[in-house]
């Protein structure tokens, strides 16, 4: 059995899906982030001054790019897989000889590709506002890739466990967005009171944003190795949870 064909079929289907609805998937992040750069980076940023030796505009660019990667890789998988469940066309995959790891890889790859594509669009828009030279492309790309993987997996688990469309909006609205904003997109964690600094260190998104910022402009509030280990560890845990859910058929089988 050639599983690579099944994998390619799922990934191609996912790419066509989000490209077909590009006004919903690719256009909004371009407009939203352009406004972020204009309002926060330009209008307010000029009055804020430098943070950690770089301009405020340069400082927020990595966080805004990665925030887009997080939200879109998550949104792609959670909406696509939940729709697949809702319309019952998940049965097309369950009936076919497609192993669980291929189903998971296919949907997660779709999420990663959309996350990276949106990240690239936002990065290109940022060039209109800031003159950024990538300090470490390997770290930049690997953090982007790992972050997209992690949040695609999280979106997959959310979709498997969701029982209604409300369930797929709760996590993005009440968990992901607050954690992203509190993860140091617009500020350095060192600007916070000590107690809030300690609390913020429990937020995994803080590590990813800072690692990405380090790769892009060479500035970070956290240890880079710890950021990679944390992201890698979370990916491993969420992969195992996803495979367990698929194996048991939780949320998708009777």
């Amino acid at each position: 059995m050639n599983y690579s064909i099944a994998y390619r079929t799922i990934v191609t289907k996912e790419i066509f899906r989000f490209i077909r609805i590009w006004p919903q998937t690719l256009l909004p992040p371009a407009i939203t982030t352009a406004l972020y750069f204009l309002i926060f980076g330009k209008l307010i940023g000029d009055r804020v001054g430098a943070i950690n030796g770089v301009t405020y505009m340069e400082y927020i660019v990595p966080g805004i790019i990665l925030m887009s990667v997080i939200s879109h890789s998550y949104a792609n998988v959670v909406s696509s897989f939940y729709s697949t469940k809702f319309q019952r066309n998940i049965e097309e995959l369950l009936v076919a000889p497609v192993p669980n790891w291929v189903i998971l890889s296919g949907y997660v790859s779709g999420g990663i590709i959309r996350g990276l594509l949106v990240g690239t669009v936002v990065a290109l828009i940022s060039l209109l506002f800031a003159d950024i030279e990538v300090k470490n492309p390997y770290i930049t790309l690997s953090v982007m890739l790992l972050t997209a993987t992690l949040f695609s997996l999280a979106g997959f688990i959310n979709a498997v466990l969701a029982e209604s469309f409300d369930d797929i909006s709760i996590i993005p609205n009440f968990v992901l967005t607050p954690l992203s904003y509190l993860g140091g997109v617009f500020f350095s964690v060192k600007m916070l009171p000590t107690i809030w600094q300690s609390i913020s260190l429990g937020n995994p998104i803080l590590y990813m944003i800072n690692a990405f910022r380090y790769g892009l402009i060479g500035v970070t509030d956290v240890d880079i190795q710890l950021a990679f280990m944390m992201t890698g560890g979370l990916i491993l845990i969420l992969t195992l949870v996803s495979l367990f859910l698929l194996h048991k058929g939780i949320g998708i089988k009777n």
Binding site: Y3, I5, K13, Q87, R88, E91, E92, A96, P97
Partner: peptide, 21 residues
């Protein structure tokens, strides 16, 4: 139980892909 937004051809073609065709 197919995706109501997919075309007839893509529904059938994708299923062949899931079977490794």
């Amino acid at each position: 139980n197919f995706n109501q937004f997919d075309t007839v051809k893509s529904i059938v073609f994708n299923q062949a892909g899931y079977y490794g065709t």
